[in-house]
Design a protein around this nucleic acid. Sequence first.
DNA 1: GTCTATATCCAGATAGAC
DNA 2: GTCTATCTGGATATAGAC
Lengths: 203, 203
Amino acid sequence: MARNADQNQRMRDESRRKILSSSLKLFATKGLGATKITDIVEESGISQGLLYHYFRSKEEIFVELIRHALQGMNAAARALEKLPLTPTEKIARAITELLRAMSENDDFARYFLLVAQANFSEAIPEEARAIIKEESDEPHEVMARIMRSGQQDGSIKKHRAEDLALVFWVLMKGFALHKAARGAEFTLPDTRILIDFFKNGEK
Amino acid sequence: MARNADQNQRMRDESRRKILSSSLKLFATKGLGATKITDIVEESGISQGLLYHYFRSKEEIFVELIRHALQGMNAAARALEKLPLTPTEKIARAITELLRAMSENDDFARYFLLVAQANFSEAIPEEARAIIKEESDEPHEVMARIMRSGQQDGSIKKHRAEDLALVFWVLMKGFALHKAARGAEFTLPDTRILIDFFKNGEK
DNA sequence: GTCTATATCCAGATAGAC
DNA sequence: GTCTATCTGGATATAGAC
C-alpha cells in the first residue's frame, strides 16, 4: 500500500518535472505567447490530457517557473552575501559563477532568460507580474550593499553603489541575451575584464 | 490628376506608417507571437481588411521592421566610425548617444528591443532570421575596430578588442532590457562609469 | 495516472461592397 | 483606399475510456 503510494508520487513528480522542463526550454527560446500547448506536449512526450491533469493552463506553468526562478536567485544572492569573503571577492565570485552557470547549465541560462523576458513583456499573466514585483528587487539590493561595503574599505570604485549594482545586473542580463542568441558559439570573455570594471584603480 | 495621385500616395504612406509604428510598439512589448492582428488593428485605428491590403501577414510586418532597424543601426555604426574623433571620443559618443536615444526616443528603444528579442527567439520568420544573419555583424565589427585603434594609441585597455566590443554591446542590450522593464522610472547611470570602463588606466 | 477523441473558441486571412 | 462580413484553421481546454 505504502509502496504503491510512493510509486504514484514518483510518477506524478516525474510527469510534472517533464512538463516544467519542456516548458522552460520552449518559453525561454520562443516566448510564452508563441509557445503552443502542443509544443510542450510534443517536447515532453506526454499527452495533452495529462498536461491538463497537472496544470490548469499554459499560464499556470509559466507562473510556477517564474516563482521557482526568482526564489532560487534570491536564495543565491543571500547566500553570496553571507559568505566569508571580501566585497571584491564576492563580486568576482558572482561574475564568474553566473557566467559559468549560464554557459554550462542550460536550464540555468533558460531560467535567467525567462525572467529577463518576463521583466519587460506586457504579455504575461497577472500573477507572474505580481511575483516579479514582489521578488525581483533582492538581487539588486544585495549587490548594492556589497558594492557599498567595498567602497568603505576602498576596494570598489567611488560611484553611486546603486549605479554599480545596476551595471552589474545589466551586464548579466546582456550576457544572458547574448548567450541565447549565439547558443553553442557563445564564448565567455575573460572575466577579469568585468571584475576590473568595478575595482578601484587608485593604488 | 497629379494632385489626386499625390494625395493617394500620402494616404497610403500614412496608413502604412500607422501599421508599422503600432506593430513596433506591440512586438517590442509583447513579442511577435503574443501580438494579435486585432491588437495591431486596434492600436492603429484602422480596419483589419486595410491591414491586409498593405501587408500579407503579421510576419511580413515583422520582417520590414527588423530590416529597417538593422539597416539604421548599420548606417549609424558606419557614420560613427567615419567621424573625425579619437577612438575614446567615438566610444564615449556611442555610449551617450545610444543611452540617450534609448531613454528619450520611444521608437528607438523599441527597435533596439525588437532586434534583441529577434536575435534569440526561435519563433521568428525565416526571412527575418536571414536578414539578421546578414546584417547584424557590422556594429560589432565597427566597435572592435574602434577598440583596436584605441589600443594602438594607448587610450583603450589591453584586452582582446573583440571581447571589449562584445562587452560594449552586451551592456547596450542589457540597458535596452532594463529600460523596457522599468519604463518611465528608467534612470540613466552616470555614463562616465561606462566610458571609464574601456579607458586605459595607465597614466 | 494516462491516453484518445471531441467541443469550443478565437486568431488569421479573404471577399466583396462602398 | 477603406470598411464590414465571413470563412477556415488551429489552439485551448474538456470528457470519458482504459
